[in-house]
Simulated assay, not measured.
Amino acid sequence: MREPSIKVEAITVVAGNVTIDLAAKNARISIEKSNTYTPPVYKGVGKPFMRELFTSKYVHGKDGMGDLNLPEPL
């Protein structure tokens, strides 16, 4: 198997479509589902600078992943 030419060193998330905690959780779920290696996940900004946080649960579901009911990340 060929070594990948790009290596993800870390993933950062910010609040937007979902809260910062949910964004971090979803990043960890996505990493686990990729079945490759586990880069660290870092939380960035938890809310917009100039207004209140408005999430998009009506589009992305309560879990931010279309309500797929995926298992909790390890």
Results as ranks from 00 to 15, higher is better:
residue 31 I to N: 04
residue 32 E to Y: 05
residue 11 I to N: 03
residue 4 P to Q: 10
residue 19 T to Q: 05
residue 10 A to C: 07
residue 22 L to D: 02
residue 14 V to N: 12
residue 16 G to L: 10
residue 56 S to C: 11
residue 13 V to E: 02
residue 15 A to F: 00
residue 45 V to E: 07
residue 50 M to W: 09
residue 4 P to D: 09
residue 13 V to S: 00
residue 3 E to G: 06
residue 39 P to E: 08
residue 26 N to Q: 07
residue 43 K to D: 03
residue 3 E to A: 14
residue 18 V to A: 02
residue 13 V to P: 01
residue 57 K to T: 07
residue 3 E to V: 07
residue 46 G to W: 04
residue 56 S to E: 15
residue 39 P to Q: 08
residue 9 E to W: 15
residue 31 I to R: 02
residue 15 A to M: 01
residue 8 V to R: 06
residue 67 D to K: 07
residue 54 F to L: 09
residue 18 V to W: 03
residue 42 Y to N: 13
residue 4 P to V: 02
residue 69 N to R: 10
residue 44 G to A: 08
residue 31 I to K: 00
residue 37 Y to E: 07
residue 72 E to G: 04
residue 50 M to S: 11
residue 16 G to T: 06
residue 63 D to H: 01
residue 3 E to Y: 09
residue 62 K to I: 13
residue 69 N to C: 15
residue 16 G to A: 11
residue 74 L to Y: 06
residue 21 D to L: 07
residue 56 S to M: 15
residue 17 N to H: 11
residue 10 A to E: 10
residue 40 P to A: 05
residue 17 N to D: 10
residue 61 G to I: 06
residue 27 A to N: 01
residue 9 E to I: 09
residue 31 I to E: 03
residue 50 M to I: 12
residue 73 P to R: 00
residue 68 L to A: 11
residue 16 G to Y: 04
residue 40 P to M: 01
residue 29 I to L: 01
residue 3 E to N: 12
residue 56 S to V: 13
residue 41 V to P: 05
